[in-house]
Design a protein around this nucleic acid. Structure first.
Lengths: 334, 334
DNA sequence: ACCGATTATCGAAGCGCTTCGACAGAGGCG
DNA sequence: CGCCTCTGTCGAAGCGCTTCGATAATCGGT
């Protein structure tokens, strides 16, 4: 084992051509005769050649690696982050790029280091907050970047996200169609609103706007993530708002507690109270009853983020804002 | 913006020394006078020099990057995976290494490609299964690797994991001490056992052994992850085993359903039924009541995995098996 | 049959860094 | 005082690849 790696010059010798010819066969940047191409590719296969990434990066000034930057704080539901991460990796591979994982611990220095050392060609930042400390740096970095989520000032940046305002509205509209007249939003823990996390606020705004538009009665509440607190909020809600019959839950960790609390308080879903959640499909499906939900299209968000980054790497101009339209799946809870 | 990157020769010129001297200052591989060192470091700072990663990798044959390979299937609880991932990244940075994220989609080819192209110096594989298709490849790869989890045949490999057998036993012993005489294990979904996931089986074995040792009565059941099925299992259990008063739950996604089902069936925790979980602390803490639990020390597992890999990269010999001892935290559920 | 354009291939010059061997100068010792 | 050993520094040779310009070879048009 441990045989020294095969180099391009060995491939060239084996195929009886010049090193540059092998390079051109592999990159396709110049025309090569079918015959030569075949001989070279055969040699590549026979010798098990893999181009040396460092050498390639040095000569071409392209590492073919992008950075994926994890959020500063985990405010978002973790499984969703994981979905983003895997879809970014998968999408990147389709463009023949790899993904370097950067965490918040290093803060902006980490981004600067990775970019300045040419370790990566571009950056994807996950779960960007309204006042994200990493954002100013991006503006001065030579490397292109794409954000998942929207900071307060997104001018000059490329951002992708689910249209959360529309998602919040969609839930309200669905409940309105079902004939409900008084609804409530159970959102993120209050700390998430306090620190200005964009998607939580935007959902709330969309909810409020739709409530106004449809002429329903509605309140938006924050929602902690342990059972007792959820149960207390539900009790209070049922108590003070007898007409309430529709619930929008935008909190993956709390959604099962909400169902438990409703059960505890003797309310049946959907007969007494209808519930629509904004959460991943797997959570909605394994709840009892399975929940009508708007899912966060993590897979598509990640794919779009990578696509946009690749466009930028090619030197193309891309739209600054990309909002993905939410889709509501009706299940048994409404 | 976008000013061309500073190179080592510019630093050398600025500091009035040879390129090689700058290199030696930065690597510390040869003695350099204090005066020269200071001048060089000043120039580095003033010019904002960052060594080019590709050039460094090419010349030194070390990329200073390790691969983190995500599991083939997500059988493990996702937040725990995320904890592994972040701790691996953090630990790697402490050794001045970065982390490349590889997913299962590419399978073994991805590993081979990353290794053969010298993109990475070594590999950390997460959530290894008993018969993991990636394992044979590792044996023939020149690059060192460390596994998180144990395959069926771990000979010649370096593996790290929580001692799940001990964790299962610890839970039983705790319940025995509390005076319970009949206990049950609610484990992973049956499909997880079927595909031979090591940690699930090992927990079950530890549970069974401890039940035998302590002379308790006990059964081990698999446990699906939606409320209705959990509720049915709990009903059946309470019905057929009236003496049952202790439950060990090794299933993060189901643990809240278990509590809900017990509530539904009129059992109080811990008065009627004591529950001890094997799960992350945050889940245990936000349950109602907060659960006595054995946590999966993801942070330490990741750190140890990286430490072992770095040792191997240095050419040192490391122990093949590293089993981390579980610790049980008593909360309100027992 | 000759010319210019086109196509296919080659050789060589780097990319920015590490590392090896060489070599001045300083210091220790008999 | 001469010799030897360290120290600290330098210059140059690559590492494996991409890419530029040059050069043959081929071709259609006239």
């Amino acid at each position: 084992m441990s045989e020294r790696a095969v180099t391009i010059s060995e491939v060239a010798r084996h195929a009886g051509v010049a090193v540059s010819t092998v390079s051109y066969v592999l990159s396709g940047k110049r025309a090569i005769s079918a015959d030569t191409r075949r001989r070279v590719l055969d040699s590549v296969r026979v010798l098990g050649y893999h181009p040396n990434a460092g050498a390639r990066a040095l000569a071409s000034k392209r590492a073919n690696v992008i950075a994926l930057v994890l959020p500063l704080r985990v405010g978002m539901h973790v499984p969703v982050l994981m979905q983003f991460a895997t879809s970014v990796v998968t999408a990147a591979r389709q463009y023949d790029h790899d993904v370097l994982l950067l965490t918040a611990d290093e803060g902006s220095d980490g981004l600067r280091r990775a970019a300045a050392s040419a370790l990566v060609d571009g950056l994807v930042l996950m779960d960007v907050e309204l006042h994200d400390s990493r954002v100013p740096l991006l503006r001065e970095l030579a490397e292109p970047s794409v954000l998942i989520g929207f900071p307060a000032d997104s001018a000059g940046l490329t951002c992708v996200d689910l249209d959360f305002a529309r998602a919040g509205a969609l839930c309200v509209e669905h409940l309105a169609e079902r004939g409900h007249t008084e609804v409530a939003l159970l959102g993120a823990p209050s700390v998430v609103y306090d620190r200005g996390t964009g998607f939580a606020r935007r959902t709330r705004e969309g909810f409020a706007a739709a409530v106004a538009d449809t002429g329903l009665k509605g309140v938006a509440l924050s929602c902690e993530e342990n059972f007792d607190q959820v149960s207390a909020v539900i009790a209070e809600l049922l108590d003070t708002r007898p007409g309430l019959s529709g619930l929008v839950v935008h909190n993956e960790a709390a959604v099962n507690h909400v169902l438990g609390a409703l059960r505890q308080h003797g309310r049946r879903v959907p007969d007494d109270v209808a519930v629509v959640a904004i959460c991943p499909d797997d959570i909605a499906e394994r709840s009892s009853p399975p929940l009508t939900s708007v899912l966060i299209p993590a897979e598509e968000v990640g794919r779009q983020a990578v696509r946009l980054l690749m466009e930028k790497l090619e030197g193309h101009v891309v739209p600054e804002d990309t909002l993905l339209q939410p889709r509501l799946t009706v299940r048994d809870s409404t």
